[in-house]
Design a protein around this nucleic acid. Structure first.
Length: 322
DNA sequence: CGTTTTTGACCCGCGC
DNA sequence: GCGCGGGTCAAAAACG
């Protein structure tokens, strides 16, 4: 979110803040906020598509100029992301790592997959699953998975409820120093057999953003999502939504913004899981990721009325007049 | 009446 | 040793 703001301040359109970050220029990707127009600009038409061939020379030049501009903005944002990411990693203090290493001594269930249930569950009627991130700890005997999920909520909503498909029991609430809004502590309802805990707190910067931090992994299926894949697997399977990339100011986390469509999980990485940006980019550039991304983009675009309208208009132009 | 939530007290690690 | 702050406990209250 901050990055998006920064991008706007820097005069960049959020349109180009896409997943082509760190990838080859041909990599597909777009923000959910991307308009149909830009979407067509970002990518050359597929083979056999006759749309561009019907454009006038002026239109072609305009489009080309626009493409150049978008590419330039993309490049600048890529650099910005890399810079911010590096800064965030550098800011990781020894304190925080010590704290997390202490956490890692807590009981954890590492035997099964990442059982974090979020994504399709979602909060409120509006499925506005905004940001996810994952933290993993290594270097100790045991390993506890820490996942951060941000959900867009109504600022007036005072309940710290994140409907993620699992049942939770609240066991405490505390006002923390760095945030005026209270932090709620939840344990999985299947405790003590399931050791997962979560902390939920509004973002200090954006009260409409609810930040849930999950610790540990569920050792049971979600009561409401039985049969579905756990987060990490589903993220790859369903594919990440075309999304903007932001950097969570609260920590060294690269987040993927699902603000618009919230249509599924997303592979998320942070400093602990992705030691450097290169690794992150390699992951994003993987064939599976790309395939899932293309699939998700197609689904997203077909849901976008602007896109369908533009497509219909383009098709209409190609129809012979009778 | 059983379950869940609330909330003040308590515990523990850390820095000074 | 003391204070601070985050995390947890557990009794009381609220809820269905």
């Amino acid at each position: 979110m901050l990055l998006m703001d920064s991008a706007r301040r820097a005069g960049c359109s959020p349109v180009c803040l896409d997943l082509s970050v760190g990838l080859s220029p041909s990599s597909p990707g777009s923000s959910p906020e991307t308009t149909a127009d830009t979407e067509r600009l970002d990518r050359p038409p597929a083979a056999g598509c006759r749309v561009t061939s019907s454009l006038s020379e002026d239109q072609a030049k305009t489009l080309e100029a626009r493409l150049t501009q978008v590419s330039e903005e993309n490049r600048r944002l890529t650099e910005m992301i890399a810079y911010l990411y590096a800064s965030q990693v550098a800011r990781q203090s020894p304190d925080s790592s010590r704290k997390r290493s202490r956490d890692s001594l807590e009981p954890s269930n590492s035997s099964d997959a990442n059982g974090n249930g979020n994504g399709s569950g979602n909060t409120k009627a509006e499925p506005d699953h905004a940001v996810e991130s994952a933290l993993s700890d290594e270097g100790t005997c045991r390993r506890i998975k820490v996942t951060r999920v941000c959900t867009r909520i109504d600022p007036a909503d005072t309940t710290l409820a994140v409907k993620d498909g699992y049942q939770w029991r609240k066991y405490g609430q505390k006002v923390t120093r760095d945030n005026p809004s209270p932090r709620a502590y939840f344990r999985c309802a299947y405790a003590p057999s399931c050791p997962v805990k979560k902390k939920v707190q509004r973002s200090a910067e954006d009260s409409s953003l609810l930040v849930a931090t999950y610790e540990g992994e569920h050792n049971h299926p979600s009561p409401t999502r039985a049969g579905e894949l756990p987060i990490a697997a589903s993220a790859t399977a369903s594919g990440p939504v075309p999304c903007s990339i932001s950097i969570n100011s609260s920590g060294p986390t690269i987040t993927l913004d699902l603000t618009k469509n919230g249509g599924g999980g997303v592979r998320v990485l942070d400093a602990a899981e992705a030691p450097d940006l290169k690794k992150l980019c390699q992951e994003i550039a993987s064939p599976d990721f790309r395939t899932a991304l293309v699939d998700q983009m197609a689904r997203s675009l077909t849901k976008d009325p602007k896109f369908t309208d533009a497509l219909a208009a383009a098709i209409l132009q190609q129809l012979p007049e009778y």
